[in-house]
């Protein structure tokens, strides 16, 4: 059960890191002042993944097209392994993501959550809410004109 919760939590932060704004992530990382010693298990490489959709939205899968992704893996001195999988072609972003992933599995996870993950989540939430609010303003409010014949 705890493993499952831990996996859920890890999934959440990895997803957050993958879609984070690179500039903001780099700034937050720099501000956190961390520079852990590590060795590469897999140096950052850019590649593509095939994105799939479903026919009719719910039917059989089909290949929609690719998107760029950069990945890397590293190990801290204590052996903790971190993976970075981020959208786009930034090796620097993948490296930060892998370091944060590794450190989130150590004692400093609560500090990192406050310094990096929470601000990223706030920024994403704000961006999404702003778009949703603009969309909501374009929602059509229908009104019916009452006609003469009864």
């Amino acid at each position: 059960m705890t493993d499952q919760i831990a996996a859920q939590d890890r999934k959440r932060w990895l997803s957050l890191l993958a879609t984070a704004d690179e500039g903001q992530l780099a700034q937050l990382w720099q501000d956190s002042g961390r520079a852990p010693a590590f060795r590469w298990l897999r140096t950052p490489e850019a590649g593509g993944v095939m994105v799939r959709g479903r026919a009719g939205g719910t039917g059989a899968p089909f290949n929609l097209g690719e998107m760029t992704v950069t990945r890397c893996s590293l190990a801290l001195e204590n052996g903790t392994v971190g993976h970075g999988y981020v959208q786009g072609r930034s090796k620097a972003k993948a490296e930060i993501a892998a370091k944060v992933d590794a450190l989130m599995q150590t004692d400093c996870s609560e500090d990192l959550r406050a310094q990096i993950l929470n601000p990223l989540a706030d920024a994403q939430h704000k961006a999404r809410t702003t778009r949703a609010a603009k969309a909501a303003a374009t929602k059509v409010e229908f009104f019916t004109l009452v006609r003469g014949e009864d």
Binding site: G47, G48, V49, R52, G53, R54, G57, E66, T68, V69
Partner: peptide, 13 residues
């Protein structure tokens, strides 16, 4: 680009 794999079908709902 090396192909890393395929994604799960996106949920347009």
């Amino acid at each position: 680009l090396p192909r890393f794999g395929a994604t799960q079908p996106i949920e347009t709902g």
